[in-house]
């Protein structure tokens, strides 16, 4: 635990070094939110609601999911980098599991971005665009739980991508394709309410809607009562399945390590 916290703190602190960079990346998130809201405003025109979804719900969806995605940063290239420079050999003999140290680093980044990127970009968006408040205070708390579970699913996906570094020389293309699929199917780029029903049904059988779509819907009160626990269960289930796959890959992969440099 002590080692875990040490990794976490280092990642947190290293974020504070480049301040200009940090400022610009918050602006970047706000620009994204602004663009999507402007497009949808033009699409809505004079309509108050389309498919029984109001324009305010669309903006709230974009603000929350884009702000979340700016926080949920996972580095898909940790293991690949360690294989390339050979430092994986020292990591294997350390008394802390490599995956635990990766998680600690990711969490350090997340805590930093949560108190900076997330809160700032939401505040700026509320001032300039406006968004719906949570349905109730309880909804807000339930949303936070959904958000944590959503991150777990995304993290488990990232671990799978990282582990594939044991078999292929460069995970960049897999990582990129994963990000495309996540961005389209989890509701960052288009609110899933507007997709055709067949596509929506297919997505409900994938882990992607667990990441951003479920938390946002909890926040808006579109998922209520028992459905919330059903949604949580779905998120947990996907986390368990993906984590298991990542685990199998780790156990198989670490037997075939060969170090190319160092």
């Amino acid at each position: 635990m002590k080692a875990f916290m040490a990794y976490l703190k280092i990642a947190f602190k290293s974020n504070t070094i480049y301040r200009v960079d940090f400022l610009f990346s918050i602006i970047g998130t706000c620009v994204n939110i602004f663009i999507y809201c402007a497009i949808w405003k033009a699409l809505y025109g004079d309509n108050i609601s389309v498919n029984s979804v109001s324009y305010e719900m669309v903006t709230t969806n974009f603000i929350l999911s884009l702000a979340m995605s700016s926080v949920f940063s996972t580095n898909d290239f940790v293991i690949q980098q360690k294989l390339w420079d050979g430092s994986i050999s020292t990591d294997m003999v350390r008394p802390i599991d490599l995956r635990v140290s990766i998680l600690a680093r990711d969490l350090g980044n997340i805590f930093f971005k949560l108190i900076t990127h997330f809160i700032l970009s939401v505040i700026i968006s509320v001032i300039f665009i406006g968004m719906l408040p949570p349905k109730s205070f309880v909804c807000l708390l339930l949303y936070v739980i959904g958000m944590i579970l959503g991150f777990c699913v995304l993290w488990a996906l990232s671990v799978i991508v990282q582990m594939s570094a044991f078999w292929i020389i460069n995970v960049w293309s897999i990582s990129t394709i994963k990000n495309v699929v996540v961005n389209v199917l989890s509701g960052i780029m288009i609110p899933l309410w507007f997709l055709p029903d067949t596509l929506k049904n297919i997505i409900s059988f994938t882990p992607f809607e667990s990441i951003y779509y479920i938390p946002v819907n909890i926040y808006l009160g579109k998922i209520t009562g028992g459905e919330i626990f059903h949604a949580y269960f779905k998120q947990l289930l996907w986390f368990a399945v993906l984590f298991y796959i990542g685990n199998v890959m780790w156990n198989k992969g670490k037997r075939r390590i060969f170090v190319q440099g160092g």
């Binding site: 699409l43 293309s173 990129t176 495309v180 389209v184 288009i190």
Partner: peptide, 27 residues
């Protein structure tokens, strides 16, 4: 790897197109 990378870039950039297409199904 080179083929996969080119394909990945193609997909990444096609995202915008896919999103526009899906959006225009409703509007």
């Amino acid at each position: 790897d080179a083929c996969m990378r080119s394909l990945a870039v193609f997909f990444r950039e096609a995202t915008g197109v896919i999103v526009i297409y899906l959006t225009m199904l409703t509007f």
